[in-house]
Design a protein around this nucleic acid. Structure first.
Lengths: 104, 104
DNA sequence: ATATTATATAAGTATTTAATTATTTACAAA
DNA sequence: TTTGTAAATAATTAAATACTTATATAATAT
């Protein structure tokens, strides 16, 4: 594995908000709107974090109407997989706002 | 494993120069003076990188006269161990300057 | 078509990070 | 004790990062 890619993936993970996103995604798909509630940051901030994770090959997206659902990619590198394994899964209560409109 | 510690260790590793330091340390102890040659950055910059790795619990030091030798800690967390495993060991030629004065 | 909703992008700002040079500390040798 | 060498710390600066608000895009519903 190339050292440049290792650096890119580590940089993508080395942020408390993105780690929380990944912890939520352990549970399955989540949409952007839910993350805004969970992380208490603005919607554009969430979008930017998700983009960074996507560019590092850690997550992918799926469009569902006007929503977008994000999930972990199927084949994670061993480094990312190890981080995912170490992260406590954050409870669904914390990952999805109550009665989230975007539950597919 | 606490999410704060995960973040700290990931931040410590998420830098190309510190990844190179860790790759060198796979081979065994190296002293600060050698790293200056390898990374082509100033001695204080190397010291600061080493401090960050030490504060994240990734390396320890050993004083040898006026030199300091750094090495990976014995019990790495699974995340750090996975990164170490993925890193190509950089050849000794690149990790120690020729006839390094600080080879203990 | 118009309005509404979800998300992305753009632009600007504040904070953090990584480098530099200068200085200090610690040890060794003369 | 003075001199030299290795490394750490301090102070500063430059670059990268993570937010913000404002705006644009895309799909849905009226």
């Amino acid at each position: 594995m190339d050292i440049q890619l290792i650096e890119k993936q580590l940089k993508a993970l080395a942020d408390i908000n993105r780690l929380k996103l990944v912890a939520c995604l352990k549970q399955g798909e989540v949409c952007v709107c839910d993350f805004v509630e969970v992380l208490q940051i603005s919607q554009p901030a969430v979008s930017q974090h998700l983009r960074k994770l996507k560019e590092a090959g850690i997550i992918t997206e799926r469009k569902v109407g006007t929503w977008k659902h994000y999930r972990l990619v199927g084949e994670l590198t061993s480094i990312v997989q190890t981080v995912v394994d170490e992260l406590e899964a954050i409870s669904i209560a914390q990952c999805k706002k109550e009665g989230s409109s975007c539950s597919s």
